[in-house]
Nucleic acid binder design. Structure first.
Lengths: 381, 381
DNA sequence: ATATCGAGTTACAACGTTTGAATAAGGGTG
DNA sequence: CACCCTTATTCAAACGTTGTAACTCGATAT
């Protein structure tokens, strides 16, 4: 072992992290051999067992860790996946994030999470970053994202595999995983109908959200099937808002509006759980009890739905699972992109996966009150 | 312009992303010149204005973006900061995260967020990843982190600048930013005392959390100062739990226990907001009204505190701000580490910053009831 | 004796960027 | 005209990895 062969390494004792060269020197083999062994490449099979052992020991002794930058540069694989959420403070997002992270991890990929806060400049910035970092894929949690559809279109160009969660997007390239909103709306309405409610109020979500219309359609279908008429007087529309947490006050406002209109109702379908919590507040102020006087159903099943008093009956989106499904799909896309490389550019047709919702019965719904029409006190008589 | 000089570039039309060489070829200057100009290096001043313009135009035309991997490799700066949270689904974390992200962004640093889920193997994994990715700094949101203190100690070794949020850590290297829990406890207790409450119950937090004891101490101090005795019968202890969201059920259980003991009380200091929401539930079940019968104070001021019915009076931690402060401090550490390089290793003494809390008055507290001692119905008579 | 082989191992050229040193062309000055 | 000083520009060597091509060195076949 000629120790003075690499004066730079032995001389420079400003203790840098060990590199392949360090391990090579320590073990007495070449850099190539070390790389082969530590990556368990097929070629490493042709190295003698003893060599492999010595290299591994040396690496362990030095606590060697490959440099991700060098590796990405050389292998053109960043091991990074960009994840864009519209607002990380929204509980809706975090569960999906957990699903994404859990699925990415065994694949050896690291998520780069970015909160774009519904701002299109942040959106641009993130796209730029994603390209610079050479992310291998992109996941966008987009249900409450108000960025113009056109900006999303930009994804298609750069050719990076991408998946959307919570929003359908007409594209030949980008797939979507989202809840079956129509079915969810149906479930919610059916639940109230089964409990005997006939006067059902509805708080429709903001118009810019795809979800709003679909849930509403599902509710209508269920009502029609049961031969129940939905009184237009009992339907209110939430205003547009860029902040999902505003749902609470919007829900309270909408409910007060309903009460003001004076039309009696015993059931209330809120756009989502935050809306429902706002409704709870408004009803509480008005002095009517849930579920004794009025039953409320939410949507999403965010963790807080369980914490409300009374806890919310809601339509579960299985958010974590949706994150998992989207990520699994993305992993497939990434693998495909890696494979064909320059061969037949098989574009792996985009698909849209509607995730089945499930009704979660909790305390905010109950049988229709027997006395009178069960309207709140303020409306009786 | 000799087009065939670089056959590799012009021949290989499997359209890769443009590199410096591409821009160089297009503009007719050297790679060095392009690099100099695009990075606005001092040396670029010596290039003619015309040259600079042409290079910039070429880069823009090609939509050139530097490759982060190559750049990190060469410059030994990853532009990455590792951010560890104990549970990304905890609203406590997400606000801090927003503060971190907002502060990191103008500094050109990208956070790598990792949810370690209170598991020590995840913790290890993250540390490994952070080293591989050569993160320039580390932020740990650690208030509800149960990893043994020893594992945290490992941070000190690797020499990466680090900051903790929400937990004090005896270290000469790692700084902490956390709420002044004692002051917070004091504020909460004083608030109830000012409202006239004399029989105040307390739900103490899990023993493993530093926060628990300190808040308790602050409460005691305030009580003593006012000459009010805290009845041990009115103090309950939350069990240990690795899941912060469990706080809700633990809070409900603790409150039921308080009611069971039969000692009348009109005020209740909960460990945190989730605990308080659990208390709300238990009191609701027991048929007593908040704040008419009993006043409740939470801690943290998570967004959901506002959404409760009634909304929670609580002690605000200014979570976003704490994230910002910790990050700013970390940026300083990083800059220092970059500067001295091999010169005097000035270790930038670790500091502990106690963030001042603030009482937020909402609906869950009110004046002590006049009738009787204001005990819940079940306890009266 | 030489050609052939395969097992074991290594040299070397990338990947895209940065940067100190080097070069080339003017433009005075002695 | 040899000198040095700007000004404008490029060279070439890294950074740590990876993977292909090539090299040794015995052993076996010709």
């Amino acid at each position: 072992m000629k120790l003075s062969v690499r004066p730079k390494l032995s001389g420079n004792n400003a203790q840098r992290r060990p590199t392949l060269a360090t391990v090579a020197e320590a073990s007495g083999f070449s850099v190539s051999a070390v790389s082969l062994v530590l990556n368990d490449r097929p070629l490493a099979r042709s190295l003698s067992a003893d060599t492999r052992k010595r290299i591994q020991q040396a690496a362990a002794a030095l606590n060697y860790r490959p440099d991700a930058a060098a590796r990405s540069l050389r292998s053109r694989r960043s091991q990074l996946v960009g994840v864009m959420v519209f607002d990380i403070a929204d509980p809706y997002c975090t569960l999906i994030l957990q699903g994404i992270q859990a699925t990415l991890q065994p694949a050896g990929l690291l998520p780069i999470i970015m909160d774009v806060h519904n701002q299109s400049d942040q959106f641009e910035r993130f796209l730029g970053l994603a390209v610079e970092r050479q992310v291998e894929g992109l996941i966008v949690v987009a249900n409450w994202l108000f960025v113009e559809i056109d900006t999303l279109r930009r994804f298609e160009r750069n050719g990076i595999p991408a998946a959307l969660v919570g929003r359908e997007f007409p594209s030949s390239v980008i797939s979507s995983v989202l809840i079956d909103n129509e079915e969810g709306g149906r479930l919610a309405m059916e639940h109230l109908l089964e409990l005997g409610h006939r006067n059902v109020a509805v708080i429709r979500g903001p118009r810019q959200l795809q979800d709003s219309d679909r849930r509403w359609r599902g509710m209508q279908i269920a009502a029609r099937a049961a031969g129940v008429r939905l009184d237009p007087q009992l339907v209110v529309q939430m205003p547009e808002s860029a902040d999902p947490l505003q749902g609470h006050v919007a829900g309270a406002d909408a409910t007060r509006e309903l009460l003001r209109r004076g039309k009696p109702f015993t059931g209330l379908l809120a756009f989502d759980d935050l809306t429902a919590s706002g409704a709870l507040r408004a009803l509480y102020e008005a002095g009517c009890r849930v579920p004794e006087d009025i039953s409320i159903v939410g949507f999403d099943d965010i963790p807080q739905a369980m914490l409300n008093t009374p806890s919310l009956t809601t339509v579960s989106q299985h958010l974590r699972q949706m994150g998992e499904v989207a990520t699994e799909h993305l992993l497939g896309l990434i693998a495909a992109a890696q494979d064909n490389g320059s061969s037949a550019a098989k574009p792996a047709k985009a698909f849209i996966r509607l995730h089945p919702p499930a009704l979660v019965r909790r305390e905010s719904t109950g049988p229709v009150p027997k006395i009178a029409v069960g309207t709140p006190k303020v409306l009786r008589g």
